[in-house]
Amino acid sequence: MIKFLKIVISVSLLLSFVTDVFCIKCWSCRSSNDPKCADPFDNSTVPITDCNEEKGLSNLPGVRPSMCRKIRQKVNGEWRYFRGCAYLGEAGIQGDERFCLMRTGTYNIFMEYCTCDSKDGCNASGIIGPMPFMIFISGMGLYFKFF
């Protein structure tokens, strides 16, 4: 019985990381179509999209989305928000999802581009929770408690 429990805990820990990486779901919306897409984000009318079901992009054949993204831009004083699946790049800045790429330009233009892959729906806000780490620590605690 203990050996079976050990196998179940080990497989559960492994799957908690694999599903976060390969089957990410992201909020998908544009503030021009739905004002609830802006910040503060209200997902009551916004669909969550399985990125594996995205059709792909014609200019990137064979590339599949692997992250979520949130784009916030200000053009001539008007804020716009876009959320969806991301195809290229890395999560966050140098792997840290707390940081986003920011650019400014002339004519009152500002853009912030945030990417994440830590959990489903991670493009809801700028703060990413440490859920995979907490699952791992909890599982390891159970593992060593019983074995």
Rank of each mutant, 00 (worst) to 15 (best):
E112A: 10
C23F: 06
A38C: 07
C122K: 01
L57I: 07
G56R: 02
L101W: 03
M134F: 15
N59A: 05
F144C: 13
D50L: 09
L5Q: 14
G121A: 12
V75D: 11
C114I: 08
P65L: 04
N108W: 13
T49V: 14
G129C: 05
N52M: 11
A86R: 03
S10Y: 03
C114P: 14
M1F: 04
S118L: 09
M140C: 13
Y81R: 01
S125A: 13
C122F: 00
P65Y: 04
G95A: 05
R72S: 15
L14G: 14
I7T: 12
V63C: 04
D34V: 01
N123P: 06
S12C: 14
W79Y: 12
S66A: 12
C37V: 02
Y87A: 04
K74R: 14
G89C: 03
M102Q: 11
L57H: 09
R103A: 13
C51S: 07
L13C: 09
G56I: 07
I109A: 14
M140T: 13
R64M: 08
S16R: 08
G105M: 02
C116H: 01
S10T: 15
T106M: 11
R80E: 13
I48H: 01
M134K: 10
E53M: 06
C29R: 01
F22G: 08
N59K: 09
G95I: 05
G84T: 08
V63K: 13
G105H: 09
I24S: 01
T104H: 02
F146H: 13
T106A: 12
K119H: 12
I128C: 06
L5G: 15
C68M: 00
L142N: 08
N76L: 13
T49S: 10
Y87L: 02
D34I: 01
L142C: 14
P40W: 00
L14W: 03
E97R: 04
K145I: 07
T106L: 08
K145L: 15
K55P: 05
K70D: 02
I127C: 07
K145T: 13
C26K: 00
P40A: 05
F4Q: 14
F146R: 12
Q73H: 06
F17S: 08
I48F: 06
I24H: 08
M111A: 07
V75M: 13
S16Q: 07
G89E: 10
K25V: 04
W79S: 15
Y113T: 03
L101G: 02
C29I: 06
P65G: 07
N108D: 15
